[in-house]
Amino acid sequence: MRAAALSPGLSDPATDAQGCFRALLDAMSRPGLVRRVPVAELRPPAPLSPAAAAVLLTLADAATPVWTDAGADAAAWLAFHTGCPPAASPGDAAFVLACGTPPPLDALMQGTDEEPHRSATVVAQVAALEAGRGGWRLSGPGIDAAHRLRVSGLPEGFAARWAANRAVFPRGVDLILCAGRDVAALPRTTAIVEEG
């Protein structure tokens, strides 16, 4: 990989990472609400969206193995900017960055009952996120009555797999959905009801 060919990462690492983190913290605290990451300048290599790239730039480093299906250019770009080591398999990764169909959730790090925090975070790039109407009806911590979220681009049957993930609480993975510069999150506590 030619370093000269790599597009830049966060332009102001401290401030940009803080802004992205707050968007993520808010998204994770209010499951299903769509937040925008403040990275207008970011031009990650295809197929990475600015949001998915910003999540990794904000959270990944040498301590977090990353598995991705995004291809060699994207992997090299992430490794260069974050120092994250590649994970040998999805099951070894702290962050699983999926641009296509995410790997089976139960094959990822689940944490243990004593250490449920040692679980993977799935960063799934999807076609579009639309809050407030149709799609999923979400409930759980962080949600007052119900949040609605329409996700375009996740495989059929994802809600059922998510229910299985939720059933092993406190173990289980957490999900960050990315589209363009938008993010939404589903911690493992969130319940999905599909409403078409």
Partner: peptide, 11 residues
């Protein structure tokens, strides 16, 4: 920040 996100995910 990673710890905070996991903390939120497991209240």
């Amino acid at each position: 920040r990673r710890a905070l996100l996991k903390a939120v995910a497991v209240p």
